[in-house]
Each structure stands twice: as C-alpha cells, then as structure tokens.
Amino acid sequence: MLHPRTHLSDDDLRAVADLERRVVAADGGRLKIEWEQLRARSTDPGAGPTTDLLWSDPQQGGRVVGYVGFDSWDGRTVELVGMVDPAARGRGIGTALLDAAVPVCRDRGFTRALLIVPRPSAAGHRLARRRGAPVEHSEHALRLDAPPPPGDEDPRTTLRPATAGDLDVLAELLTAAFGQAPTHLRAGLAGGGTLVVEHDGAVVGTVRRQRDGSSGGVYGFAVAPGSQGRGIGRDVLRRVSRRFFADGATSVHLEVAVDNDRALGLYTSVGFTLVQTEDYHDLPL
C-alpha cells in the first residue's frame, strides 16, 4: 500500500531506518540515504510537496517494506534513492514506487531525475533499463574507519567557518570543481559546517563537514585548480577526518566520481576504502 509523505513522523523515520538495516544486511554495501535531510523533514509541518514515498504491507501489520526519497542539490535535478525489503521483492513494489515517483518529480518542477542504483543490484538495473534510463554517471562511496596516519600540517594552510561574505568565492570554487554550485549554499553556512581553506591568506578551497550519528561526512570538497598538486587537499582531508574521530565519530564517508582518478588517489592515500559503487540512471520524466 502506497503512502506519499510531505512530512516524516518519528515512526516513519524509525520504519525507514529499520528497512535500511534489513536491506544492507542482505545486500551489503550501503544506500545513499541523506539522513540529515530526512530528519529535517520530521520537523516540517508537512504543508508542502511530496518528499518521500513509503510502501507498507498489510499482511505484516503495516510494516514498511518499500521506500523512495527525493533529494535535490540544485533545485533542478532530483536524486531518487529507493529500497525494497528483501523478503518482499518480486512482488512489483519497486515498479509501483517508481510509477508513483515520476509524476511527483514532474509536479515538483524537476527537469531531471537520477535514479541511484548500487552497482551489485541486478534488479535495480533491470528496473532502470525497463524505464529507458541509461547510466549518466557513477560514483564510488568511500569510508575511513580509523584516524588517518600522521602527517605534517602546513602552518600556511588554515581552515575557518565560511561566512556570507565568502559566498561568491565559494560558488566560483564549487562551479570550477563540479560544474555548478548548490542552490542551498547560503543555508549551508548555518552551524559552521562549511569551511573555507586559506593558504598564505588566500582562499584556495572549501569543504563541508556533516555529522550523522556516529559517522562523519565530507561534502563539497574543492581546491582551486591553481593550488592543486601542492599537498593542500591531503592536509585538509587529514585535519577534517581527525577532527571527526576526535569528536567521537567511528567512521568518515565521502563520494567521488569513478573517473576522477586524481581525487580517488588522494582519498585512498589518506586511508579511505571502497564501500560501494553507485550508478546514476537518467530517468525520463
């Protein structure tokens, strides 16, 4: 039974978390569920667009056995992350959820939808192919399970919380690195999670730290092209990772495009290892 949500209750959050645990226990790897955003949706009064789709099984007392979430980085492209309980697969639940998700994407004004499928998921890729959704790009999900090995910190490199006065230079840095800056860049300044990297007093990079329970997340990590190859990125990544562990985190995670060999080499040199490769299918709307 389908349940569109414009607001996630505490019970909904627990049901999605339980479903995620069952799926990961069966399939391994991980699922790219943005828990910070899901928890934020639990504080919203619910008067707005559909943000999540849940599927319950009346034969199991209404237990949630399917889920799709909608997350957008730039307000135009939406990422769809879905899962189906291993014990409920083969019943068309994934297809029904995707059937319901496409009109939600159109109603919310998104011009592009990317369906994220873990590479080992044969069923997920079959579903994407039936929809005529080719792979647009792929990313490696990496994890660090212990503080990185010691390394010298360059005293000329400093990190500080970003302010509103940094927005223009941060947008320029992120656009150079990723092709565009996030529309929520200003909102991301709250809480001091977005950091500015300076070297000899000049802004040369940025990184966003985000804590999610016992795990730390590294996002939007960019070093200006003219400052790359000088050890600045490795120094910053070590510092940020060590801070997470010092604050009690048990792991740190990040994502990198599979064709970005330079960044992948940097991350693995600090100790990050591959958890999952995820394919982003361009879903026709």
Rank of each mutant, 00 (worst) to 15 (best):
R63H: 01
R112D: 10
P103S: 07
L97H: 02
L80P: 02
A87I: 04
V104N: 07
R106W: 05
A128Q: 04
L53M: 06
I116C: 12
R91F: 05
D52I: 01
L54G: 00
I93S: 09
R131G: 09
T95W: 10
P103A: 04
P58S: 02
G48C: 06
T77P: 13
R130L: 14
G48F: 07
D52E: 13
L53I: 05
G109D: 13
D99M: 08
D52C: 11
R119I: 09
L127Y: 10
P49I: 06
A47N: 09
P86A: 01
V78I: 14
G46L: 06
A47T: 14
G124L: 01
D85K: 02
V84R: 04
F110E: 03
I116H: 02
P118A: 07
A101Q: 05
A123T: 13
R119T: 15
Q59S: 15
T50I: 15
V117D: 05
G92Q: 11
E79S: 15
A101I: 01
I93A: 09
V102D: 07
L80R: 04
F70E: 09
P120I: 12
I116F: 00
V65G: 06
T50P: 00
V65S: 04
E79I: 14
A96S: 14
E79F: 15
P58N: 00
G75W: 05
A100N: 08
G90I: 09
G62K: 05
T111Q: 13
A88M: 07
L80N: 03
T95C: 09
P58I: 02
A113N: 05
C105R: 03
G109H: 13
G61F: 04
R108V: 15
P118N: 04
P49A: 13
T51W: 03
R108N: 15
R106F: 04
P49L: 03
W55A: 12
H125K: 08
C105Q: 02
L53S: 03
C105D: 01
H125R: 14
V78L: 11
T50A: 06
L54M: 05
A123L: 13
S72Y: 08
L114M: 13
W73N: 13
P118F: 01
R106N: 07
E79D: 15
S56L: 07
V104S: 07
